[in-house]
Design a protein around this nucleic acid. Structure first.
Lengths: 202, 202
DNA sequence: GTCTATAAGGTGATAGAC
DNA sequence: GTCTATCACCTTATAGAC
């Protein structure tokens, strides 16, 4: 674990995060991580034993940041309607500061889904307050009868997909430079409105 | 190019497609492709010279299948409203038959965006009939004033994202087995309704 | 066209001096 | 803890026999 203030260990961890996020497990090179950290390659093995173990720690932290970050928002003390734009705003911020996070997690899971089974098996999302609020609203016929999972996937896909597919989206849709920031700003509002509108107007 | 009926060459191409789609450029091994094709490793170099060139052909074909496949639908002789569910149905079919296609294309572009610049520079989407129809409908105030690019991203993200993030989605949302097919079936209808509803009711 | 054998270089990992 | 040197293996690619 990287919890103490050992500078060298943290430097390696940060460098590894950067390289793994960009190149993935298969594409990353221990030498490149060492160079990125400005440190000797042997140190990587001294602190983390093997490439696999270093990757494993990076992946675990990344996955937690990707999924765990929204749990407080999902369980917060506000309405489902308020939660939707907050979730989108949260992910937009996370992606802005860490553009490769989502793509990294999803790519590695796709290429090697079995290896992380234990990390994933937690029904934290399904048991969240957000899901319960939606179920209640459906029972009270306040909103359209749609499975909360569908709503959830709509929420995250509409904001996360553009970042995962960023290179393709940018070029095929001419969203280079300032256009991109504008696109994301509009995206948050439009996607949230679209979902809320769909649920309430029926 | 793989156009003639040379069996060996096609066998290699199909095997390479399978392996590259699953493992990506960095993770794929020439030996694994040879084994998959049931053929000697030297044959790969005989027909495709290098790993890079073999990959390049696979990527190009995959990208065309991923993007090019919807162009006829976008330019078809029907309304924008009819096109939306058709696009989603098309992608659902493509993903069903080729589960790794989208993830492969997007992962490789993310890890090495610069290398494929020339393939991407085509405004086929922006100049399609679908985009023109949306612009017209906006001008006539028949639908809400939303940039067509936002509509487009909503359409594709809502159906493609679940497949790209399939391993994560399946486990975190308990969509194993039959639940998955049901989820996708519902997804197509809900996502299309959501977008059309948003555009028309304002 | 297809195979075996092998070259040439890269990559993860460790030993051992300091 | 940090470094240099080096091992052992893997991977792409080619040479050359058939």
């Amino acid at each position: 674990m990287v919890e103490n203030n050992n500078t060298t260990e943290n430097q390696i961890f940060e460098a590894a995060l950067k390289v793994f996020h960009k190149k993935g497990l298969a594409g990353a090179r221990m030498q490149e991580i060492a160079d990125e950290a400005g440190i000797n390659k042997s140190m990587l093995h001294y602190y983390f034993r093997s490439k696999e173990q270093l990757f494993s720690q990076i992946f675990l932290q990344s996955f937690k940041r990707f999924i765990g970050g929204i749990l407080p928002l999902l369980n917060a003390d506000n309405t489902w309607e308020e939660k939707i734009p907050e979730i989108m705003g949260h992910y937009a911020n996370v992606m802005q500061n860490n553009p490769h996070l989502a793509g990294f997690v999803i790519s590695e899971l796709r290429q090697n889904a079995g290896a992380f089974g234990d990390i994933l098996k937690q029904n934290a999302l399904l048991n969240s307050v957000f899901f319960k609020q939606l179920q209640e609203a459906i029972q009270k016929k306040e909103i359209r009868n749609v499975h909360p999972v569908q709503i959830w996937v709509s929420v995250i896909s509409s904001i996360i997909f553009p970042y995962i597919a960023e290179p393709m989206v940018k070029v095929t849709l001419d969203l280079q430079g300032d256009n991109w920031d504008m696109f994301i700003t509009n995206r948050k509002k439009i996607a949230a409105d679209m979902i809320i509108n769909y649920l309430k107007v029926f």
